[in-house]
Design a protein around this nucleic acid. Sequence first.
DNA 1: TCAAGCAACTGGCTTAAACCAGTTGTAGGC
DNA 2: GCCTACAACTGGTTTAAGCCAGTTGCTTGA
Lengths: 258, 258
Amino acid sequence: MNLDVAEGQLPSRRIADAVRALITSGELAPGDKLPSERELARRFGTARNTAREAIRLLTEEGLVTAQHGRGVFVREKERMFRWGSERYSRRTHRETGLTPFRLEMARQGKEARVEVTSIEQITPPFDVAERLKASPEEPSALRRCNTYYADDEPLQVVTTYLRWSDAEGTALLQPKTGPGGIYGRLEERGHIMTTGQDEITARMASHDEARALDLPPGVPVLDVLHTSFDQDGEPFEVSRFVHRADRAGLVYHFPVES
Amino acid sequence: MNLDVAEGQLPSRRIADAVRALITSGELAPGDKLPSERELARRFGTARNTAREAIRLLTEEGLVTAQHGRGVFVREKERMFRWGSERYSRRTHRETGLTPFRLEMARQGKEARVEVTSIEQITPPFDVAERLKASPEEPSALRRCNTYYADDEPLQVVTTYLRWSDAEGTALLQPKTGPGGIYGRLEERGHIMTTGQDEITARMASHDEARALDLPPGVPVLDVLHTSFDQDGEPFEVSRFVHRADRAGLVYHFPVES
DNA sequence: TCAAGCAACTGGCTTAAACCAGTTGTAGGC
DNA sequence: GCCTACAACTGGTTTAAGCCAGTTGCTTGA
């Protein structure tokens, strides 16, 4: 491993640049172990903290991840799960008998598990209230929080909001919502999902999300705010999907207006 | 400002938790200045480096940004630009006479500027070749790189790939592609955009992207790989949009298959 | 009045040393 | 043969000190 040539001013950047070059050139492949902090410091004639700072820079770029007691490794490209508007297709569900999440997991050969972490009547946050056409000043909504796991690794956190008037006295207040899931119960209340809207942003995980998703540093989240509209064009369900971005991608197909 | 109560084990986490609490409670509002590193260290009875580490944690969460010589500030919520499938609508373009980018900038009261950074015949990368149905082993594609600015701040980097056979000998090799832009020239070659596909991921910016977009630490990018299909369902254009995620969001509307 | 320059702040980076906490392989004892 | 215990690694955190480099406002002199 040649770490010699490396210009640039700051020692920590020189080390980072040298290691980054090894990674992008393929000399260090995904899964490979980097020299230890102490070893890098020795080779570059710096203090250990300086080598450590260099590794921190690479971690922040998402190039490497550290494992306490084991070493620092070039990050593997993870298999991606792809979600798109088809996840709401009732036809797919009818044909396979699987929910979209279980279907995608089966496709990737992973075990699916869903954990319902809370079901509560709440006053909806402003952005949700606006989209759901519910009052942001009263407990006008039901909130259901779920965590989705693939092979026991948390993959996404989903918070679903429904109007309290639709949920009151139904199985929507229970963890198990029955055949057809949430959308099945909502159809019984007269809401057939006809169109949807997804609003997508990316950001660093909040402190709580990082804990819930067991996120290593240098991994952002994809934040999808979904709104379902019924046959009358009225919104009846809003969900926020928070995916870890190194494991999830989204796909949308659309016609182009001439 | 009350920074007293704060449990937790590590000093750096205690400081970070205390400051985070001030931010989420609103006691420190966006734009406000944090106590200096030296001041935080003094108040918590730690070394300056420990206070610095706490601020680093908050920076990584995207909560604060540091400015050399001035201080550390609670990050402002930036105004967001929203992009969706309508950006490809020819009707909108016809009615306003503006490209989608200029239209969105005008909507937000910002000055739009586009810089063409390179136009080259290249061998397309594998993922692009696959989608464009071009050979990944010969210089079978034209690559156009653009940087889009809002009020002189770089907002997105776009790389467009076209089949060389479509581009050869046309205005597509020039910075100015003429009326209707790229899609205008491609229509003349017999490709009318009929459907599109967007594949969306989020990740930390590469070293080069962070420089090109002038990204502060703690800001990820939204990576959109777009494919355009013509009236025969054949792909004829692939573009990669890299947006800074604190300034850009995406919106998709879709029908739901019954 | 104005501007140059300086003092006192801010964060940015490095050093050097110490100790804690996981991991891994091996030497010993049973 | 197996398991325990330990030694020798790994990264994680903190201290304390020094110097560099932007920013800001005030003092001072022309």
